[in-house]
């Protein structure tokens, strides 16, 4: 494959995934993996796993994985192209829908709709957290951290999350060091 083709190939990989990532970014990670490792051979599986780990360690959305893949494949240009190809198409749709939803005056049916959707969204929030919990390594210490953090965040709704998260991370490191 010609080197010049790579930016275009990145667009072809990430734009469809952007439009197909229904239900969130997690749903397409396996597909990104398959395409960049098996189909295009841009990197080894170990390389991809390392990029995934970095995307998890970084703050911000996990979908920054697309930026990292672009960078690894073609440097800054690749990072820019992969990010644009992944984030712009779905964002344009979200932009259009938000605009229509929030247009001009609020109508009473929107209030009813919002009230009706609230328990549904709540179910989705809890399902998402539960799914992530199930896919974690599930040691006793992790379950204790989840329980303790839930209690702390419920009891102090205005507390900044960052110190709690750092304390939890350090607790898990000490557990790992002791065992």
């Amino acid at each position: 494959m010609m080197r010049d083709d790579i930016p275009w190939q990145l667009v072809l990989v990430f734009t469809p995934l952007s439009l197909l990532s229904l239900g969130g970014g997690q749903s397409v990670i396996a597909d990104i993996n398959k395409q960049v490792v098996d189909l295009h051979g841009w990197m080894s599986q170990a390389d991809f796993v390392a990029l995934f780990a970095i995307s998890r360690a970084s703050p911000g959305p996990g979908s920054l994985l697309s930026t990292l893949v672009g960078w690894r494949v073609d440097g800054p240009v690749g990072a820019l192209i992969a990010s644009l190809a992944y984030f712009v198409p779905s964002s344009v749709i979200a932009f259009a829908v938000s605009r229509i939803w929030n247009r001009q005056q609020r109508r009473s049916w929107q209030g009813v709709l919002e009230q009706g959707l609230a328990p549904l969204a709540t179910g989705l929030i809890l399902s998402g957290a539960f799914t992530v919990l199930r896919s974690s390594s599930g040691t006793v210490s992790l379950w204790l951290i989840v329980a303790a953090a839930t209690a702390v965040f419920i009891l102090w709704p205005k507390l900044s999350p960052l110190p709690v998260l750092l304390a939890a991370g350090l607790a898990q490191v000490s557990v790992g060091a002791l065992s």
Binding site: V132, S137, I145, V146, A149, V152, G169, L170, A171, V173
Partner: peptide, 18 residues
Amino acid sequence: DLLEGIAAAAIGLTFSVG
């Protein structure tokens, strides 16, 4: 381990919002 602990607390954060 650090990241796992942080992620566990983030799950707690999401549960509290739920």
